[in-house]
Design a protein around this nucleic acid. Structure first.
Lengths: 92, 92
DNA sequence: GGGCCTTATCGTATTTTCACGAAATACGAT
DNA sequence: ATCGTATTTCGTGAAAATACGATAAGGCCC
C-alpha cells in the first residue's frame, strides 16, 4: 500500500491531539475564534509553563498559530490544517 | 464549556493513532477487512512483539478487535468506534 | 532607563512510550 | 504427549512526554 506519507501525517496530527489539554485548547480556540495565551492558561488547571509547552506542540503540528499582539500573543486555530485532519480521518 | 468528557474521548482515540505504525495497521485492516496478526507483522518493519504491543493499544482504544481463530488471531477494525472518532473530529 | 506584564525557554524530576529479545501461552497436528 | 506455529506477555533499556518552578526575553508605560 505504502501510504506511509499519509500515515505519518495523520499520526503526527493525532499525536498533537493525543492529550486532553491540547484538545481542550483547540476546542476553546475554535469557540472563541481567537484569544490570548493568558486566557488559555486561566482555563486549564495547569501551570503556565506547561500550557506554553502544549501550545508549542499544537503550533508545531500546525493546528494553531500565534501572532504577537503588543505585549501578548494571540492564538487562533488553523482551520485549513484542521480540515486536513478531518479529511485524513474521514478518508480512513 | 466542560466538554471534558469529549476531550478525553477524543484525546485517547487520537493518542491511539498517534503513531505511524498504528495508523498503518488500522488502514490495512480497513482495506483487507480482516487479517491475522502475522500478516500485519510481515507488513511492518518491526519485531513481532512490538507489533503485538501496538495491536494491544489499538485494542484498548477500541479501534480494533481480535478474535481467536484456531491457532491464530484474526483482527478486524471496529467500524463503530472509527465512526465515533470521525464524528468527534468532524464536530471540532 | 526601570518596573511591569505576558509568554517562552531552561533545568529537572517523574512517568510513559517504544522497541527488542526471551519466555510463556495457546492451539493444531502428528 | 510432543512438536511446531502463532501471539502475547515479561523484562529491560533508551528515548520522549508531562509537569513544574525558576529564569529569561519581549514589549508597554511611567
Amino acid at each position: 500500500m505504502s501510504q506511509d506519507r499519509n500515515d505519518d501525517a495523520l499520526a503526527s496530527l493525532c499525536k498533537a491531539l493525543g492529550h486532553p489539554a491540547r484538545v481542550a485548547i483547540l476546542r476553546h480556540l475554535l469557540q472563541v475564534d481567537r484569544c490570548i495565551c493568558g486566557e488559555i492558561v486561566s482555563i486549564l488547571p495547569l501551570a503556565q509553563s506547561t500550557v506554553s509547552q502544549h501550545l508549542k506542540q499544537l503550533k508545531e503540528a500546525g493546528l494553531i498559530r500565534g501572532e504577537i499582539e503588543g505585549p501578548r500573543i494571540c492564538y487562533c486555530a488553523d482551520k485549513e490544517r484542521l480540515a486536513e485532519l478531518k479529511n485524513l480521518v474521514t478518508a480512513l
